[in-house]
């Protein structure tokens, strides 16, 4: 094949790809796609999967200490869901030709990122509630539009995840409502947790649009559907009345309704903190990755044993077939 013919064919494929996106149809695994699209998706889906898996840790620490059996069951189910969501997403990444073992290696070697929010510590049981309310709330804000992402397997994984995550957010908010009806000490725990998690939650939407170099291409490809700042604004607008209903104060003196814009104005997160946390200097980065690495390495003998048994079984079956 000549170069000219090759690039002509490639142009055909590219225009077919663009047309599919233009019609708001899904790209499926067998379709031709530009390398950049594939690479961007693998990175985004893998980071998303890693976030689910690392995100099990901050709350997971409270399962054995949950103060009622009902909360214990809910929390165990929730953290288990996160493992499931990680698996759905790794599954979607694998349709792009990525290999889960390789993605895991990248995570535990620090070569692939996960959401910065999970590098903050959980200091009291109120944190479980606030994570459900803020962090899962922000995640849903991010994820609901992704149910219409242009890549089919990713969009379908997000549908399933969003459906399951509405429970996560509700359990958190309900825990906080219960605690706010409890003792003064409990109300203080809730406010303290709100104070600590508010700004990191706003940072979950990523840097401001002007400072987010990959966003424009991702939106053109319909991998992302809204900009970071749009989603952040939506989160703030939705959360403010919920905070009022709960009876807590969001720790931002600049937070107020702007009649003209029809949105809340709010203060600027400390972007240098976000950069520091993303680049590894958050309070818990080291322990989060170390825990994941330890689980993976300590489980190696189990995975190897299962593979060895499967190989032996297959060999036995072959011998029987011959005999």
């Amino acid at each position: 094949m000549t170069e000219a013919a090759g690039s002509g064919a490639e142009q055909d494929l590219e225009s077919q790809f663009e047309a599919t996106i233009g019609r708001d149809q899904r790209i499926e695994p067998r379709d031709w796609m530009p390398e950049g699209y594939r690479r961007t998706l693998i990175r985004q889906v893998a980071q998303h999967a890693h976030s689910e898996i690392i995100g099990m840790q901050p709350e997971g620490e409270w399962i054995t200490r949950a103060p009622s059996l009902r909360r214990k069951a809910i929390l165990l189910a929730k953290v288990q869901d996160e493992a499931g969501h990680g698996l759905y997403l790794y599954s979607a990444a694998e349709t792009l030709g990525a290999d889960r073992a390789d993605l895991t290696e990248r995570l535990i070697e620090g070569r692939q990122k996960y959401s910065s929010i999970f590098n903050y510590p959980t200091l009291s049981f109120a944190d479980v509630g606030v994570i459900g309310w803020f962090v899962d709330g922000a995640a849903i804000c991010n994820q609901v539009p992704l149910c219409r992402s242009s890549y089919g397997p990713y969009a379908r994984a997000m549908v399933r995840i969003c459906k399951e995550e509405s429970f996560h957010q509700r359990q958190g908010y309900e825990l906080l409502m219960t605690m706010m009806r409890g003792t003064d000490e409990q109300r203080e725990m809730v406010q303290d947790a709100v104070d600590r998690w508010w700004w990191p939650s706003l940072m979950m939407f990523g840097p401001p649009d002007g400072d987010s170099p990959n966003s424009a291409q991702s939106m053109a490809w319909k991998i992302k559907r809204h900009s970071n700042d749009e989603l952040r604004q939506r989160f703030v607008d939705m959360t403010v009345p919920q905070a009022a209903r709960l009876g807590v104060t969001l720790p931002d003196p600049e937070l107020r309704w702007n009649e003209e814009r029809g949105h809340h104005d709010f203060g600027t997160p400390d972007w240098s903190e976000l950069k520091a946390v993303i680049s590894g200097d958050g309070p818990c980065n080291t322990e989060r990755v170390a825990r994941r690495r330890a689980a993976h390495e300590e489980g190696a003998w189990v995975r190897a044993a299962a593979s060895a048994h499967a190989a032996k079984q297959a060999a036995r079956a072959r011998e029987e077939a011959v005999a």
Binding site: T64, L76, E298
Partner: peptide
Amino acid sequence: LAEWVTRAPELEEEVALANIGLDLLG
């Protein structure tokens, strides 16, 4: 069983052990 959460040898096992723990808790 809950102590295995975030420590299981494979993610699928994470889900399985939690399921069993939830059954027993119930």
